[in-house]
């Protein structure tokens, strides 16, 4: 078959059920084949051309979206890391009040769908007079949600530290804050690189939801291009590859970082 892809469509003969006839049948050069018909269903195979070149003139626009996704994710990763560190410190501190407060924050934001949090910030808050633009809302929402997951990872990292190591620091007279900063945190971060990587990759994936609040990041701009070109297949195929490449490169960096930070540790850790 000379075409790159075959497309199957199920149609019940006589009724319009189950078919989504291509809106732009002419434009996509369909070549209809009746393959077989049985028990009232017709299966049609449409051979389509898979043609990326039609996206050429939209590349700058898509790149803009990619750049926005990159920017939003980078700031949000930093935001969640800072927030996560503070909250992890609060959750492992000796203050009962800080413990409770931080636990409530983590539980709340981990247990509410991100899109609901986002809508609350973007559509809910203006009702009580708080207006934040879409970009800032997106970054704030991602950082807050990411911070909840990040703090949890860092906290587990801290709790997994050999108690004797912390005791050695205590008896040598180091202050609590110094122990956190010089001992607990560096050890926890070393062991948490991989799980933190998963959190950040998740954050990148979640950033696609920001398209629902008019932010034309990667997904938002792809939606626009898809509706302009009537070529959803090509557009979303490119989007798929773009996200895969983005998250794949992040996991490469995370792997390298993990190996670098743990280069002097026991075999099992590295």
């Amino acid at each position: 078959m000379p075409t790159i892809l075959s497309w199957l469509n199920v149609k019940r003969s006589g009724g319009g059920w189950g078919t989504t006839p291509l809106k732009n049948a002419a434009a996509v050069d369909t070549d209809l084949l009746i393959l077989l018909s049985e028990t009232g269903f017709t299966i049609e195979a449409r051979r389509l051309q898979f043609d990326l070149s039609i996206l050429a003139k939209h590349i700058p626009f898509l790149l803009e979206g990619t750049w926005l996704t990159f920017k939003v994710c980078l700031i949000s990763v930093i935001g969640s890391l800072v927030l996560g560190l503070l909250v992890a410190a609060a959750r492992t501190s000796s203050s009962t009040f800080l413990n409770r407060l931080s636990a409530v924050y983590v539980d709340m934001f981990r247990n509410i769908p991100f899109i609901v949090q986002l809508f609350f910030f973007y559509f809910g808050l203006p009702e009580i007079g708080i207006y934040i633009d879409a970009l800032s809302t997106g970054i704030i929402a991602l950082s807050i949600a990411g911070g909840a997951f990040t703090s949890d990872v860092i906290r587990s990292g801290i709790l997994a530290i050999e108690p004797g190591v912390i005791e050695a620091a205590q008896v040598s007279g180091l202050k609590r804050a110094t122990i956190f900063r010089r001992i607990a945190l560096p050890i926890a971060l070393r062991t948490s690189v991989r799980p933190l990587g998963s959190v950040f990759i998740n954050l990148i994936l979640t950033s696609s939801v920001l398209s629902t609040i008019t932010l034309n990041e990667l997904t938002g701009s792809a939606k626009i291009v898809a509706s302009q070109t009537f070529r959803p297949f090509e557009v979303y195929f490119v989007l798929l590859v773009a996200y895969a490449a983005l998250t794949w490169s992040v996991s490469i960096v995370i792997g390298a970082l993990h190996r670098h930070l743990n280069r002097n540790q026991a075999e099992g850790v590295a």
Binding site: E162, G164, V165, A168, S172, I183, P186, I187, N264
Partner: peptide, 13 residues
């Protein structure tokens, strides 16, 4: 006072 531990408890990093 200084303490020496059975399992050393060195700072691994």
């Amino acid at each position: 006072s200084g303490t020496v531990f059975q399992l050393f408890n060195l700072y691994p990093h």
